[in-house]
Computed example of a mutant assay.
Amino acid sequence: MTGATGIGAAVALRLADLGHRVFVVSLDPDECRPLVALLGDQAAGFSAADLRDESAAVAAFTAADEALGGVDLVVAVAGGSGRGFGDGPLHEVTLQAWEETLRLNLTTAFLTARESVRRLRRTGGSLVLVGSVLAARPSPELFGTQAYATAKAGIAGLVTTLAAMYVNDGVRVNAVAPGLVRTPMARRAASDPMIQEYARRKQPLAAGMIEPGTVAEAVCAIGLAECVTGQVLAVDGGWSVTEA
């Protein structure tokens, strides 16, 4: 699984609770170590790798394959906000900000998907990617990060094309598209009263921000569902069906 905080950590812990051995791939070893410790006997190890880098991604998946004795489920959570690069309304976005945001959110998904499929084709299995509700249900006033939304829309396209390409190999490819989740990436939102009020109206089922464990439940459900492929499941507390 890729990602060691927020949704990634919640998914890893949920999979461990379900009896799965988990190998963690994430950029920061200081985030990987405490998660692996929490996984206890279900931990298969970790690799600190920048999944924007092809050689690092290949090495990380090789390590995971060896540690697990084969890969049958991959959950790709790695990614993050592009605000630090300058992501925002398109007329203000530089080419560098655009490219860096897509590298962080779409290139990581591509390399993770490619390395996953190369292994899953051997015996079948499941890949779950993480998109965003913003790809299809934008909120320009509060979340006007257009490179990020485009990258997440690209993940939805990747799901459809990969599911069609590899269905006869027994490989299932799906995604979840969360709404506003209480993660380290959402610190700005968590500290902004206007966004918090918006979240209470926009995500009424969560009465505000969604907890990572809620998303993890959906990730595990769709990832382990044997006859489901090519789907993007919104886990958004009602965001996509409310007017607020």
Rank of each mutant, 00 (worst) to 15 (best):
G82M: 10
A153G: 14
A16S: 15
S81K: 06
P212F: 10
M209W: 12
V36D: 15
A76N: 12
A4Y: 14
V133L: 12
A221W: 12
L15E: 13
S191G: 13
A9W: 03
A151K: 00
T62H: 08
G179M: 07
T94D: 03
R187F: 05
V171M: 07
P89E: 09
T101Q: 09
V74F: 03
A234T: 00
G82P: 02
A151D: 00
V232N: 05
P178G: 15
P178H: 14
R122V: 13
D65R: 08
Q196V: 08
D192Q: 07
M165G: 12
G144T: 09
R201K: 15
Y148G: 03
D28G: 15
A4L: 14
V36C: 13
R21Y: 03
V173W: 11
A49Y: 04
V74G: 01
A186D: 07
A97M: 04
L162I: 07
A147V: 00
P204E: 10
S191H: 15
E141I: 00
V228S: 03
A48G: 07
I195C: 03
L104C: 02
R122I: 13
T62I: 01
W239L: 04
E211I: 01
F23K: 04
V228E: 00
V133E: 14
E115Y: 05
H91V: 07
A149L: 04
V117N: 00
A175I: 06
A218L: 11
N105S: 02
A59Y: 05
L73K: 06
A221D: 09
A136I: 06
G8A: 14
F61R: 00
L127F: 11
L35M: 10
A206E: 00
T94L: 06
A57M: 04
A67Y: 05
S116H: 00
A78Q: 02
A135D: 12
R182L: 14
S132L: 07
A12D: 03
R83G: 11
F85I: 02
G6Y: 08
L95F: 08
V133G: 10
P212S: 13
T2S: 15
A76G: 06
V159Q: 09
T123A: 15
L205A: 11
G6Q: 10
R172S: 10
A190P: 07
V36F: 04
G79P: 01
P140L: 05
G8D: 12
C227T: 04
V77S: 10
Q203T: 06
M1G: 10
A163V: 07
I155G: 02
L35V: 09
G213T: 08
G237C: 08
I155E: 01
Q196F: 04
D50N: 13
Y148C: 02
P212T: 09
I210T: 11
R182V: 05
R83E: 14
A147T: 05
D236E: 04
T160D: 06
E243P: 03
T94P: 07
Y166D: 03
T150C: 11
E99D: 15
E141D: 12
V235Y: 08
L224Q: 10
T112V: 07
G125T: 02
A49V: 01
G144M: 08
